[in-house]
Design a protein around this nucleic acid. Structure first.
Lengths: 201, 201, 201, 201
DNA sequence: AATGAATGAGAATTCATTCAT
DNA sequence: CATGAATGAATTCTCATTCAT
């Protein structure tokens, strides 16, 4: 996806991961726009010239970071969604796993939310597509529960979007919540809200 | 809050509003960082030199725009929260008014979410404080409903935060929802979710 | 032709002439590509930032310099071509005036020849168009002499091009000629060659 | 002339020719300055590292290309100048051969004219010396014709320079000529002009 | 109060050249 | 001999801010 002048594909992967990690470190504190390529170069211990052997332009780094973060999220979803067979257990378990992840990746998820608008179209579509997939998996799960009669949900498409959105509350609004409430407590309340929304007894 | 070299306070207000409106126009399409002061100057029809008579630095404009948007939101809240006496009616009515507002101010609210991180501390605290007030009003309302026994809610503080967050779903994730579902339908589902979360029959 | 951010058109003209002169000074010794914008900025005593208020990109300077030089050449042509009525006198006088100019503008003309390839299309066409006009005026003059029977010339179009080309010999190959022969002598020989080519007795 | 790290002189020659041909291909379309070493490396199918085993710096390539082109020109001159014994035939034949060559090497000759200024002194002198030799051979030929009484020419040195210059008209100004006139016709007119200049009946 | 010309620090990006393998 | 990854100085251009009028 991101073009590189280097021939060795293994090296490309290694260095792009290195760039990602360095970039994320500085992006977290200053945001994408306020971070200069020089700072990224220092943070990932790759010289300015070499950096440009692995990317074409600054925006490529933004995309690499997005991809890295989104991959972690989808991996979490996929690892957990099929651990159980019963829809209620399946949803509860997946939600909790995702919520715990959102606590761990607070800053990363906040970053994705606030900076994805700076991606060029090509990359933005890629990212939005990935998000849509994420929502789709939740939708499929909800529909399954509706079929078994365990969920009541007149519009699973909208509802799965709402769930996906609620999932990001801790990264996006944690500053007003977490200082006074434990993350576990919040996760409990959020999970229960979703289940109530599906009329699970 | 924003320092100005001009003496006439009436003029300051007039010009700062003018700046706000011009700035918002360009911010919407290009974001804060990608917009130059020159562009803002043109968009608000105030010369570059004069602009700096009413602000000290670019960030001041970011704050002015934030304030403008937040004021509209709180005005909406305050206008609607006391139209009824019954907590359920009060909440339902307020939520719907706010949801409709969020549809009208989609881009503005998205802007506040994605750009507030660029505010300097002084301004950021001001903005976060305003948001906390917003949540507080919702919390007070929920507590009142709990007292009358109409709401069941073990942690009104967290729940009011959740409600405030859900309120912003259309600006933040509308791209995946609105093309296929009407805003009215979504608002209906969201309102019902909140009421279910409070165990309102 | 060259876009400027400055409003006062008088000032634009003044500064663009200032840029031209400074640029030419450095271009002469280092060529266009090897000269940095910073050097131009210093040579014309305009700060880097201001420079970019009067041009959009480096190439604009190249075009401005081209225009300045070409204008001098056409002014010379136009001032001299109509001083006489007899075609032979007309041609002789114009040629000599032009040759003397080519001696005065040796470096400038060399510059136009070697650097016009670096102009972007839009500008290149403008420059080539101007050159074509120059040749056209010579062609018209030759045709007039052919009509009066004073010149014999089967293909005035090609011949006028040849004359226009011969005109540039001193700037382009002077290094091998001028050290050993006086410019006057060379001009005499060149003029006589052209007249012989037209079978003028 | 151009220093190389490699010992085998045969290989040096082979590779330098390879470099020349690749370089010329890209120089033609982008010019010397705008062409990067990387592009040259790709065009001649020699890795970046190896390239620097056969040259010391970018300018060396510029010189190699110059030499390659100039050699072709002198080869043409030398092959043709002694095919006849009569000065008029000798000159006519040589001129035509050279003109046909100038049509074939349009871009190469233009390149030499516009880029030789970028050569460092050492190389520039080498190139100018070669050109002077070229002119000298023409001068000798003209002097011979003057001696036999077939040419009238008061200053053969200047005249031979003029002839050498006229020779390059098609590469340098062909854009304004060739679209409308055939190359043969132009060559005929040019040859006739030179002969008229020497008062050949 | 208003204007807009001037400034220079700093941004992203390129590229000739080196050097370890 | 050959390869190609690594380097960092230098380049063009932008832009927030100041200041003379």
């Amino acid at each position: 996806m991101v073009k590189s002048k280097i021939k060795d594909p293994q090296l490309i992967l290694k260095r792009q991961r290195q760039i990602c990690q360095g970039a994320l470190k500085v992006f977290r504190s200053k945001g994408y726009h306020a971070t200069s390529i020089r700072e990224i170069s220092k943070a990932c211990h790759i010289s300015l010239g070499s950096l440009y052997d692995y990317i074409e332009k600054k925006e490529d780094i933004l995309f690499l970071v997005h991809k890295e973060i989104l991959d972690q999220i989808y991996d979490c979803l996929n690892e957990n969604i099929n651990k159980f067979n019963d829809p209620v257990e399946q949803l509860t378990n997946t939600l909790k796993a995702l919520f715990y992840l959102s606590c761990r990746l607070k800053e990363e998820i906040l970053f994705v939310y606030t900076e994805s608008k700076s991606l060029e179209k090509k990359y933005l579509y890629e990212v939005l597509g990935k998000e849509a997939e994420f929502v789709n998996e939740l939708e499929t799960l909800i529909k399954k529960g509706v079929k078994t009669g365990q969920f009541i949900c007149p519009n699973p498409e909208v509802f799965s979007n709402i769930v996906a959105f609620i999932w990001s509350i801790i990264p996006l609004r944690g500053w007003n919540l977490v200082p006074k409430n434990s993350e576990e407590e919040i996760i409990e309340i959020l999970t229960s809200l979703v289940l109530k929304g599906l009329d699970v007894k």
